[in-house]
Amino acid sequence: MTAAFRLTDSTLRDGSHAVAHQLTEDQVRRVVAGLDMAGVPVIEVTHGDGLGGSSFNYGFSHTDEMNLVRVAVETATSAKIAVLMLPGIGVKDDLRRAAGMGAQLARIATHCTEADIAEQHIALAKELGMEAVGFLMMSHMIEPEALLEQARLMESYGADVVYTVDSAGAMTIDDARRRVAALKAGLSCQVGIHAHNNLSLAVANSLAALEEGVDQIDGCMTGLGAGAGNCPTEVLVAACEKTGWETGIDPISIIEVADRAVRPIRPEQGVIDGDGLLLGYAGVYGSFLLHAKRAAERYGVPTKDILLELGERRVVGGQEDMIIDVAMELQRRAAAAQPAVG
């Protein structure tokens, strides 16, 4: 039977955020082998912030991502390997190198209002013979009609599929449904959804997207990913099977792979703590979470206050440097509010 949608597993890219970009070749080999055996058709492997993401601002990679991509390509027998790139962080040469390593899909991500900075990168992906995926991050911040306009730009540059990406895990079921429906109605290319679990809705939103005809869905094993995590791949597969959506993946095998290959990487993954929930509630980019926790400790201010202030300032993905700015400002404000001593 053919699958109702194509699944992309992003454990080895979005999951990179959850482990501060410390993934190793060994972990990549084990996870790719498991996903490939279970029948997952696309596996994404890159620094959490995409090609070139290894930096002071986002965290330095433990292992050069090109080595991780190489290991993934060598390990996969039928799955295709995808890479993420954000124009402004990675450059075209990074994409050329990844293609040279055997990556077959290029996922080009921009903030949901800035699709036009992806033109040259989507074109390059096609030129390199890769499948080009347009990835509109923080899609909750604009209305479905505005999102469609941006998606149309990506389609016009040559994207084979355009995703609505809920980077902040801020979408309700209705939000997800309306965005997928708008894209399905207005695009000729395929439509995908990438959900986060900060409001505990990642699987529900993906199922609602299926009802609206979504063609591609992202998941991460055990939910390993930014913020409170992603749509857990193994849960999605099981829920789809029970609902009657064919996935092409055996639920029992994928559950075993999740437990054996991914759960040990971060056993506590899956808990939606107050800070993770707040990301979804305030609409803050998920990968800010660990950086905000670190800044909270360094400057002695509550993580929650940092996240709320970031939401207030409408900071977008990639602006991790603003976390330091916000934490220092909160520290100054707190000091100013202290009664004078002596």
Binding site: S55, N57, G88, I89, H111, T113, E114, I117, R313, R314, V315, V316, G318, Q319, D321, M322, I324, D325
Partner: peptide
């Protein structure tokens, strides 16, 4: 690294 921010009212240019 270059980032574009669409917030309204527009933000001042920031550099870190």
């Amino acid at each position: 690294i270059m980032i574009l921010n669409p917030a309204e009212p527009p933000i001042l240019m920031r550099n870190t």
